[in-house]
């Protein structure tokens, strides 16, 4: 995988805004669990058929700022990551509160080997 730039939570939004200004299309976000505390979120952007990626290593317990206000397309995938990895995104334009795929009473995050209990589910 080439063209990977690490970003921090603080830089994330400005980086995405810059990508949008450049005319990049948001392809998707990929999330992969690293260990009990952290996950990798990779933001894939496409411009003229070449990809570039931002890698954000986030802590599971800390909310990640949502980029759905910049890229509306991030809405579904961010909700998906909330469901499957138990992360929380702050500032989602439509927040399904971890009920996109899961039922409201489910308290597990299916894609984590190290499960974190979901406390604040609607």
């Amino acid at each position: 995988m080439q063209n990977v730039t690490p970003v921090t939570i603080a830089e994330l939004k400005t980086a995405c805004q810059a990508a949008k200004a450049e005319g990049c299309r948001l392809v998707t976000l990929s999330c992969a669990e690293l260990d009990a505390e952290t996950v990798d979120i990779i933001y894939h952007f496409d411009k003229d058929l070449s990809l570039k990626h931002y890698r954000l290593t986030a802590k599971k317990c800390e909310p990640v700022p949502s980029i759905s206000d910049i890229y509306f397309a991030a809405l579904l995938v961010e909700n998906e990551i909330q469901d499957l990895f138990g992360l929380s995104f702050s500032g989602l334009v439509v927040d399904y509160k971890q009920t996109l795929y899961l039922e409201a009473e489910v308290r597990k995050t299916p894609f984590c080997k190290y499960s974190v209990a979901i406390a604040n589910k609607a």
Binding site: V27, T28, S30, C31, A32, E33, I42, H44, A73, L76, V77
Partner: peptide
């Protein structure tokens, strides 16, 4: 789009599939 992550084991660590309808 497929995002594949592996660490030299028989099983992959992560297969992430972004299908077109999702987009």
């Amino acid at each position: 789009l497929y995002y594949l992550k592996a660490s030299g084991k028989k099983n992959l660590d992560r297969v992430r599939i972004r299908t077109p309808t999702f987009a």
